[in-house]
Simulated scan of single mutants.
Amino acid sequence: MPVWQESILLLAVALVLAVVIKTFFVQAFYIPSESMEPGLIKNDRILVQKVSYWFGGGPARGDVIVFEDPGGWLQGNEPAPTGLANLLSKVGLYPTGGHLVKRVVGTEGDVIECCDEEGRILVNGEPIDESDYIAERHGKCAAVFQGQCDWSVGPIPEGKLFVLGDNRMSSADSRFHMCGPDVETCAESPWVDADLVVGKVFSLVWPRARWTWVSNPGAFDGVPDDPPTVD
Rank of each mutant, 00 (worst) to 15 (best):
G72A: 07
G56S: 05
G58Y: 07
Q49N: 12
V64F: 03
E78I: 09
L84A: 05
A60L: 15
W73V: 02
P59Y: 10
G58C: 14
G58L: 15
K50Q: 02
V64P: 05
D69M: 00
G58H: 09
F67T: 03
F67C: 04
G71K: 03
G72F: 08
G56H: 08
G72W: 08
W73F: 12
F67V: 00
G58F: 08
A85T: 13
Q49I: 05
E68I: 01
W54Y: 08
I65G: 11
Q49M: 10
I65V: 13
G71C: 01
G76K: 10
V64L: 08
F67D: 03
L74F: 05
G56E: 08
D63H: 06
A80V: 15
Q75G: 05
R61D: 09
Y53V: 10
L74K: 05
G71L: 03
G71R: 01
E78T: 10
L74Y: 00
P59H: 11
P59Q: 09
P59I: 12
Y53W: 06
E68M: 04
D69S: 02
P59S: 11
P59G: 12
P70T: 04
P59M: 11
D63F: 06
E68S: 01
E68Y: 07
L74W: 05
I65D: 10
Q49Y: 14
L84P: 04
E68P: 02
G76D: 06
I65Q: 12
G62P: 00
